[in-house]
Computed example of a mutant assay.
Amino acid sequence: MTVGTKWKDAPIQTVTLTLYRFDTWRARAWALGMMGLGRILLPRVPDIGFWKLCGAGKGEGFTPTANMATVAILATWPDHATAQFGTQHSASFQRYARKADESWTVYLSATRSSGAWAGQAPFEVSTQTSDGPLAALTRATIKPGIAAQFWRRVPDISRMIGSDPNVAFKIGIGEVPLLHQVTFSIWPDAQAMAAFARQDGPHARAIRAVRAGKWFREELYARFAILGDHGTWGGSSPLDRLEAA
């Protein structure tokens, strides 16, 4: 499914999230080994900007238990065409795709971004606006002394977001287990996402605790318009679920 095609040729920074699934233990061992080599190869991809190579959590991804079957690459590119070529044809991304049993890339343009990631503000906010489907990303560096408190709250939040019929897709990924956490979700519109955020439940209580206790050393929040995707996840495009949501 293609979303937001009116943005497709605009000369704006494009952000990609690419997921790879590895079914066999041999492939998973290869992917684990690539966590080191990949950090050497990815900076060599032509025109790639900010990038992060991440693992994922089990279940919905919002868990402290590593999911050895999933690898994620988040990257920025100067425009949509370059992002498509880089994620589909560059040697480093193809290396992962050849080993993976399934892969999916979603193309995004930032409409809002605040905070920092590894000391950088990686996402260029476009002046164009979109009132259609959107994606939300949160990233935080959790203070080591707070990690246990943070992860005790996560199962309830995971169940809450997993039961929300408006969430078309969600995953939790991270650079460093337990301490560097990224959440990514796709929603049919801003109203649906805001309704979830306003609910008085585990998510709202966790946000209040984070603010009161200053649990994070660094954090970033970004919202994106969805430009389109390539590949499948779970046998189909997650963007197809936007219509059902």
Rank of each mutant, 00 (worst) to 15 (best):
M68D: 10
G57Q: 02
W7S: 02
R44C: 04
F85G: 05
T24F: 08
A91R: 13
R21K: 15
D47N: 15
T2K: 12
P11F: 12
S90D: 15
L37C: 00
A72L: 15
Q94E: 12
W77K: 08
K8N: 09
T82M: 05
P46K: 08
T5M: 06
A69V: 00
D9I: 05
T16P: 01
L74T: 08
T65E: 13
K58N: 10
G86F: 05
G55I: 07
T87L: 03
Q13F: 12
G55W: 09
P64T: 04
P78S: 09
I48R: 06
I48D: 00
W77N: 08
Q84G: 12
P43K: 01
M35L: 12
K6M: 00
F85V: 14
V15P: 03
L42W: 04
D23F: 08
A83Y: 07
K58L: 14
V15W: 08
P11H: 10
T2E: 11
F22Q: 01
T14R: 06
S92P: 00
W7I: 07
T76P: 09
A75Y: 07
A29H: 04
D9H: 14
R26C: 00
I48V: 15
P46T: 04
R28W: 06
L19K: 13
I12N: 05
L74I: 14
R44P: 00
G49S: 02
T82F: 06
M1H: 14
W25T: 10
W51R: 12
G86H: 01
V45I: 14
Q13R: 08
R39Q: 14
P78Y: 04
G59S: 09
S90G: 09
C54D: 01
N67C: 03
D79C: 12
T65I: 12
G55C: 09
G55F: 06
M34H: 10
E60Q: 08
S90E: 04
W51H: 15
C54P: 00
W77S: 03
G33V: 07
K6E: 13
V45W: 03
T16W: 01
G61S: 09
M68A: 14
D79A: 13
W7R: 09
K52V: 06
P64E: 13
L74C: 06
L32H: 07
G57V: 06
L53S: 09
D79M: 13
L32R: 14
G38M: 03
F93G: 05
Q94K: 15
I73A: 10
T76V: 10
L17H: 02
R39D: 01
G61Q: 06
D47I: 01
P46L: 05
K58A: 13
T2I: 11
A31M: 11
T24P: 02
L32K: 10
K52F: 00
V3R: 13
G61R: 06
I73F: 10
T87D: 05
A27P: 01
H89Q: 15
T2A: 09
P78V: 10
T87R: 05
Y20L: 03
C54G: 00
F93I: 02
F22N: 05
A10Y: 03
I12K: 05
T5I: 10
C54A: 13
